[in-house]
Design a protein around this nucleic acid. Structure first.
Lengths: 344, 344
DNA sequence: AGTTAGCACTCACGAAGATAGAGTGCTAAC
DNA sequence: GTTAGCACTCTATCTTCGTGAGTGCTAACT
């Protein structure tokens, strides 16, 4: 069944009211506060219909109604109007990306902070996906009698480093030669494709460095695999505590421990790949049982059209969607721009 | 006044009981559960004395007693016995540091995780203090028309990187030359001492790179200053919620927001520099008002005798001190050993 | 047919009171 | 110096009860 004009008006009013009060909304409140144009009795009938259709829920018989996941979804898709952020607010965000000397990691960290502060919810920024970056350059530096430092740089200017065991002394000369050979060969490879077999083609060329070839391969491989390089930065953990729906200590604990498991977060963000721009998961739409009461507004930041990482705001289903969407959008753009600038 | 044998016995029993129950301890409980050898009435008198002397506090008139900061301090300094961790537990911790290919940052992160999991409190690990590390090597790589990547490596094998603006095209050759000059000159300097004036002595040598000298200086400076390089990793945020004393939502929020401010944490850890080994701050002994109800057990991990960073466990004053001390100790040692191994 | 007023009914929530129980401090006897 | 006994204090918990917001239904109204 379609939602007629009046049902939409009612639903919209309920959601708006509930978002700002966190209290179940009753028909009388609605009739008084919002200009629906009919009496509370009529609204009651509409609400009853909306509940039957799955857009509303009732916490208990004699309470007002609360939006269901479906209700929120309809609101987000059809009822909500986008908003424009204050100039000044946008300014605050953009100023973050103006600093001259830039270490990417601290930029990511600050992004998480600013996103949590402006939204008043929890923010989450995933560092660059090295796996998908292209190899640019590596350097092997002697550290000691038997250890060397492997520094690896991608085309985008991301750096990764490891200590590897070279099993016995390797001098600068020797490491330099290996570096050169590898640099020539790996040029242009995507890090994700540099697997254990990567060096097979070079076996003859590298034969004199037999003793640490295995370590080197592992070094290159781990560097580029899994969630290794994709650190996740949280901001505003304390913000979720403010929300009345998360006063429950057990639930809070579940949420926090979930957020500490980077692998889960990684899944959370990758499942939500539909389409470009800002994407929204409401309540049960996300895959983590502990986050069923949350909504997640996320987006992908890019460099030269390629995905670098994701960022998200996590809040109660009752979140201020228009504002959060606008924030995520502007932060994502700013961060992408910043990256582009770093290479300009 | 000195605490006689019996007062000490009473104090000890109270603290042990309170640590395990989180409930104010009464005289009758004490007489029954602990072998003090006198009646509850006598214990009452002793408790009254102990309160007068500042070792105990009473939440309200008709409740049992609770240890004061001073009480805990006496316990930690004089009454408590150290414990030995289970072999198996030590094994779990040490196994963390056995992996072959090592990226230091992920090791630090895992340290925070294991420390929080084994202690069941919140753990905190501060990354390497680059400021105090010695310059080893730097490399400038062209990123684009006008940007270059500055990669900086310390003697300990820590890596830091930045994007700097070179104002117009700089080719590999050019950047290589600058790198060489800087490498020669900065050899052996402590990063903290590479200030804005660092390159003054090289002005003539570098005169042909005038256009990006300023940026370069800033790059080198920021790299080594402030809390920039000293990232702080948290583990087990969810653990503090378990503690009955932190059920209060407002307090919890204060604690969490405090912990997100790295600068504060940095202060917290540096104030506590007395002596070697594991150090303990109880309640009001730390400088942060939001953490007055917490105790902090911290230690310094080192490389070749020099401080690299700190780590800490934060829990309620009512924490299991012997266990946490043992854990912090073994983790600190393991991490230091791991670092030493990386350079061996 | 759709809308509205009226009304009985439900149910969570908060205040108020009652009760229990743990604990203290004091006194007097041992 | 130690202990038993006892009156007193105070919190935590449970129950009860009233209140008010809200619903759903019915019957009248437009």
């Amino acid at each position: 069944m379609e939602l007629d004009q009046r049902k939409q008006r009612v639903l919209r009013a309920i959601i708006i009211d509930y978002i700002s009060t966190a209290e179940p909304v009753g028909s009388r409140t609605l009739a008084k506060k919002y200009d629906i144009g009919v009496s509370s009795a009529t609204i009651r009938n509409e609400m009853s219909d909306l509940e039957e259709m799955g857009y509303l829920e009732q916490p208990h018989t004699s309470a007002g109604r609360v939006p269901s996941d479906r209700g929120y979804r309809f609101y987000v898709d059809s009822l909500m109007e986008g908003i424009q952020l204050e100039e000044q607010e946008v300014g605050v965000i953009k100023s973050l990306y103006k600093s001259k000397v830039k270490e990417f990691e601290s930029v990511v960290k600050q992004t998480a902070r600013v996103l949590s502060q402006t939204s008043d919810y929890l923010a989450l920024v995933q560092g660059p996906r090295l796996k998908e970056s292209v190899f640019r350059y590596l350097q092997l530096l002697p550290l000691s009698e038997s250890k060397a430092l492997l520094v690896l740089v991608t085309e985008d200017g991301f750096v990764q480093n490891k200590v590897i065991d070279v099993h016995g002394y390797a001098d600068v000369q020797e490491l330099q030669s290996v570096s050169m050979i590898l640099n020539n060969y790996l040029q242009g490879h995507t890090l994700g494709t540099i697997g254990r077999g990567a060096l097979r083609d070079l076996l003859t060329e590298l034969s004199s460095y037999q003793r640490f070839l295995k370590e080197l391969m592992e070094g290159l491989e781990v560097t580029s695999s899994g969630s290794d390089g994709e650190k996740i930065y949280l901001g505003g953990t304390a913000n979720i505590i403010k929300q009345p729906e998360f006063q429950d200590v057990v639930r809070l604990q579940n949420i926090l421990s979930t957020l500490e498991q980077e692998a889960l977060i990684y899944d959370l963000l990758s499942h939500n790949d539909f389409g470009r721009g800002v994407s929204i998961q409401i309540g049960g739409e996300n895959s983590l049982p502990e986050l069923q009461e949350c909504s997640i507004v996320s987006a992908t930041y890019t460099l030269e059209g390629k995905t670098v990482g994701k960022l998200a705001v996590i809040g109660p289903k009752r979140m201020n969607y228009p504002r959060v969407i606008a924030l995520v959008d502007v932060v994502t753009r700013s961060l992408s721009e910043f990256l582009a600038d770093s290479l300009r």
